[in-house]
Structure formats: structure tokens, C-alpha cells
Design a protein around this nucleic acid. Structure first.
Lengths: 144, 144
DNA sequence: TAATATTCCTACTATTTTGGTAGTATATTA
DNA sequence: TAATATACTACCAAAATAGTAGGAATATTA
């Protein structure tokens, strides 16, 4: 159930970009440093986000990465789908044809219910939504 | 995101027991055959379910496994919790102290939202609930 | 009591996934 | 052209996962 670092790092990286949007390209090293992630490993994850069309890269000096779209137009579900190949709990959850016994299968109900609950959460939030909520939380904690 | 076979097999096995409750102990081999799972591997999973107090075993000839409680008193969440050590998406989701930056962290919101959605689904169903729903589905499909 | 059926226990092993490293090529800026 | 970045490809180590093997313990049946 624990998410892979691949997914967790990827989400943290794209949220970092979202938080720093509008300030020009953000360099890989900067993201890696701020999030305390291996730069070389993150490089691969950024490639995934890039090929999914969620971020754009700028090569050469003063280059880096920027969001491909405004942060309020990128849903979490998109980010997850490209990082985790399958955001599903079992093959048969999405593909009813996968197993002949799918129709009356009690176990499959578990997989589909979980799958739907997760997809719902991921589809509900954009990157900007998360940042806004987190800022609200963070601000409160500073008052203490 | 895909559940491990450990969890999937374990859930299928205990649902098999639930479907055959009241007919005396069900043998490991019978569960393994019906669910098409390696008997030797399943043996280990049954040990986990047993030590969690969800099933009881009967040794010797005509022995096997039975549910420790009626199927409408066993929630899915219990089954998951013993099979998957942590039914959580990231350490910080359950344990706020795990990371200093947890307070204003946008990523953590993702992990906690997912975590809560999953727990909710698992807590909502008992084994019997699932069997009833699956039978309803299965019956419909026979009408075609 | 002997034979048989079954769970129990421990250790081992193969495979896959995960997480990370290294080095070179290519593009951009100054 | 020199310095700074990303792009690409290949490789590697550790951990987790999935499964095997073999025999000991225990209960039932004949």
C-alpha cells in the first residue's frame, strides 16, 4: 500500500514547481536540494513528467523545469497516472475481461471499491488546491 | 498501487472461508485449488490470518480452517491490517511527527487524503457484505 | 496401535521491483 | 568558446516479493 518513492518524489517535485511557478525555470538541483532527493534519480522522474506533458524543460545555462500548464489545471490524477503505471489495486479492477470469474467475485468488489475511492480523491484536487490548503495549515502552525 | 499477492491471496482465501462457512473446516488444499493459488504459499498467509485471530485451524484428518467469528463481524480493514503491515501511503500520513515539515506540506495532504479514503472503504464492509453484493451481481449475470 | 491426513514451522531460493549511480551527448547562455 | 544545464542510455545493488522444500507435530480413522 505504501506508495513508491518514484511516485512520492515525483509528486513532491511537481508540487515544488507549482509553488515556485512564475519565477522562471527551476533547476533540477534546486528541486532536489529543497526536497532532499537524489538529483540523478529525480532526473529520471522529471523525464517521466515531461514525456507525459506535465512539465516542460529548458536546456542549457539558466535552464530548468517549469509546469507545462497553470497549477490549477493540473490534476493529481494525471500526475499519478504517469508516475505509477497503473493506479489500480489489481488487474481485474479496471479490466473486467481479465478474469472469467469477475462477475460474481467478492474479492473483486474490494479492489474496485478501493480503486474508485482512490481515483476520486486524485481527480478532486489540482496542484493549486493542495498548495492553498497546505498554506492555510502551515500558516496556522506558525501562530503557535 | 497494485496490492501485493500476499494481500490479494489472503483476502480471497478468507472470503472463500466466508462463502463456505457452516460446512465444517475447509482444507488448505481446497482453498488453494478453488482460488488457484500455490498451497505452500497460501499456508504462510493462513498463518498470518490465524495469528491475527481472524481464522481458527483444526489439525489432523478432516481438519482445515474456519472463520474465528461470523462473517458479518469481520471487517475488511482487519484483514488488510494484518496482511499489509501498513495500510498507509507514506510514513508521515499516519505519523505527523515523522517529518518536521509535515505542517505546511502539500504532498502530505495527498497521502493523508488517499489514506483516509482507503481506510473508509475497508472499514465500511464486512466479509458478509461483500458476499451478498457479489451474489447479487453474479445472479444477474446468469440471467443473460 | 498403525496408517493417514492435515496443519505447523523453519529455512532456503528465485524473481522482480526499487532506488540509485555513472558517463556521455546535446543545447543554451554569456 | 567556456560554463551551465538537461537528455539519454546503461548499469548496479539492495530490498521486497513470491514461491519451494522438507520434515515435525497433531488429530482422525480403521
Amino acid at each position: 500500500m505504501k506508495l513508491s518513492t518514484r511516485t512520492r518524489y515525483g509528486v513532491r517535485a511537481i508540487l515544488e514547481l507549482a509553488e515556485n511557478a512564475g519565477k522562471g525555470p527551476m533547476q533540477l538541483k534546486a528541486i532536489a536540494n529543497r526536497q532532499d532527493i537524489s538529483a540523478k534519480y529525480l532526473e529520471q522522474l522529471m523525464a517521466v513528467l515531461k514525456s507525459a506533458g506535465l512539465v516542460r524543460s529548458v536546456r542549457g545555462a539558466k535552464g530548468g523545469y517549469v509546469l507545462a500548464r497553470p497549477s490549477n489545471e493540473i490534476r493529481l490524477s494525471e500526475v499519478f497516472h504517469c508516475l505509477e503505471g497503473t493506479v489500480t489495486t489489481a488487474e481485474c479492477a479496471e479490466d473486467e475481461e481479465y478474469c472469467q470469474r469477475a462477475a460474481g467475485c467478492a474479492a473483486r468488489l474490494v479492489w474496485t471499491q478501493m480503486h474508485e475511492a482512490i481515483e476520486e480523491v486524485l481527480a478532486a484536487s489540482t496542484l493549486q488546491d493542495l498548495i492553498d490548503k497546505a498554506r492555510a495549515h502551515g500558516a496556522v502552525s506558525y501562530h503557535i
